[in-house]
Amino acid sequence: MACFVVPGAEAVVVTAAYFVAKKREQKLELLKLDNTARYETAEPRITWSKRLGWLLALLWGGVLLLAFEHFWHGEVVPFPPFLTAMSSPEDTAEMLAEMGSVGVSMAVTVTAVWGLICAVAEAKVRKLRTALKKNAA
């Protein structure tokens, strides 16, 4: 009915977090340029903006395709109230229940898989760092 709204709300919050992280990293980059001696030993690492970028692609991609699916089934319309389930109180209650079960599960699953991707990527980068340190020694 409108389960994609829950990951959609998460996507909005993550988008804001992504821009905050990106701004912080840009500030840090400027600091590095000002003080090259202090930051000379740069190691390979995955930035938070990169990690959040993966989550954004997962969430917005899923939300876009699911919104299209709901449009296909006539559950989303291009005019107010946009969700056909909002036309009657019974349907609205059913829609909210579905958002609470299916929608929340979707958001949790996508976030959990993203966490797994980050953990694997971090392990790979850590391995690379160790190899680089061994080569340098």
């Binding site: 389960c3 994609f4 990951p7 993966w54 692609a57 997962l58 969430l59 917005w60 991609g61 899923g62 939300v63 876009l64 395709l65 699911l66 699916e69 079960s101 299916v102 599960s105 979707m106 699953t109 996508v110 898989v113």
Partner: peptide
């Protein structure tokens, strides 16, 4: 290409949960 695959994986995971329910 990473973005393209993440778009499809995101939708696949969401539909997987829909299927489970």
């Amino acid at each position: 290409l990473g973005t393209l695959s993440l778009i499809y994986w995101g939708a696949s995971l969401m539909w997987l949960m829909d299927f489970v329910f």
